[in-house]
Amino acid sequence: MSPTASWARVPEGAESDASVVRRSLHEPADFGEIFRRHVPALHRYAARRLGPAEADDVVAETFHIAFRKRHRYDPAYPDARPWLWRIAANLIRRHHRTETRHYRALARTGVDPVLEGHADRVDARVDADSVSASLAASLAGLSKGDRDVLLLIAWGELTYEEVATVLGIPVGTVRSRLHRARKRLRTDLSASAVHHEEGAR
């Protein structure tokens, strides 16, 4: 699949990200348009994985790196998301321990509305508070590779092809990692549901 076909998400009629980046080479202030277009989604994704404080740092560094390296932007991609998400993914990997601690804390408190929403889609039989804690505990136990794939798809809302581009891995690897991660989550959440039902008796 071509980059244009896979990542053509710029609204019809709007100037492409590629054009904005190219223009910013001569007018650096114009790069602010890339920031305005993509910072909300990128910050939301990073905050779900690391918490708000760490997300602020990751997002700021992502755009700092992107600005410095904008001359290397591939114009075949009209949408800058694969480029930005790849930078962010590399930065998030450096925070693997922080991310794991974040999920373990959520597992103890059971309070996170974002996790609750995703958990409801994974297994609607369990109440939101219980699933939030269970899902966080399960995410903490995933390998870095499996977690990256699962959350880029579930929270980053990327396709298999897009995740492969961001992580630099074959689509087949994306599929196998996602299958493994989903299987682990289903097993963990089912066990949690049984435990919750037994405790309610």
Results as ranks from 00 to 15, higher is better:
Tyr103Arg: 06
Asp17Phe: 10
Arg101Trp: 06
Val114Asp: 11
Pro82Ala: 06
Ala47Val: 06
Pro40Ile: 13
Asp120Met: 03
Pro75Glu: 12
Arg125Ala: 15
Ala133His: 05
Tyr103Gln: 09
Ala107Gly: 13
His43Gly: 03
Asp123Ala: 02
Ser132Arg: 15
Thr100Glu: 13
Ile153His: 07
Val58Pro: 02
Asn90Lys: 13
Phe35Ala: 10
Arg108Asn: 04
Arg49Thr: 12
Glu33Ala: 13
Arg22Trp: 10
Gly145Val: 00
Pro40Cys: 05
Glu27Ser: 03
Ser143His: 04
Pro75Val: 15
Glu99Lys: 03
Thr100Arg: 15
Ala128Lys: 10
Leu152Glu: 07
Arg68Asn: 12
Asp112Arg: 09
Leu84Glu: 00
His71Pro: 00
His64Arg: 15
Arg48Cys: 10
Asp57Asn: 13
Gly141Ile: 01
Pro75Ile: 15
Arg101Val: 08
Asp56Ile: 08
His118Thr: 13
Arg104Ser: 04
Ala46Tyr: 04
Ala119Val: 12
Asp79Ile: 02
Ser130Asn: 07
Phe67Leu: 13
Arg101Thr: 07
Leu50Thr: 12
Arg49Tyr: 01
Val149Thr: 13
Leu135Cys: 03
Arg72Ser: 14
Arg108Lys: 08
Arg37Met: 01
Arg81Ser: 11
Lys144Ala: 11
Arg37Thr: 02
Val20Glu: 03
Leu84Asp: 00
Arg86Asp: 02
Val20Cys: 01
Pro52His: 02
Ala80Val: 14
Ala89Met: 13
Arg108Ala: 15
Phe31Thr: 09
Arg108Met: 05
Arg23Pro: 01
Ala133Asp: 02
Asp120Ala: 04
Ala128Ser: 12
Arg125Lys: 14
Leu135Glu: 04
Arg72Trp: 09
Leu84Tyr: 02
Gly145Thr: 04
His96Asp: 10
Arg121Tyr: 12
Leu84Thr: 09
Arg108Thr: 02
Ala128Phe: 03
Val111Gln: 11
Asp112Lys: 11
Val59Lys: 01
Trp83Phe: 15
Glu33His: 05
Leu135Asp: 04
Arg49Ala: 12
Tyr77Met: 09
Asp56Met: 08
Ala119Thr: 08
His95Asn: 05
Asp30Arg: 00
Lys69Val: 09
Ala29Asp: 09
Tyr77Trp: 14
His43Ile: 10
Val149His: 03
Asp57Lys: 15
Gly145Phe: 00
Arg72Lys: 10
Arg70Trp: 11
Arg81Gln: 05
Ala55Cys: 09
Ser130Gln: 11
Leu135Thr: 07
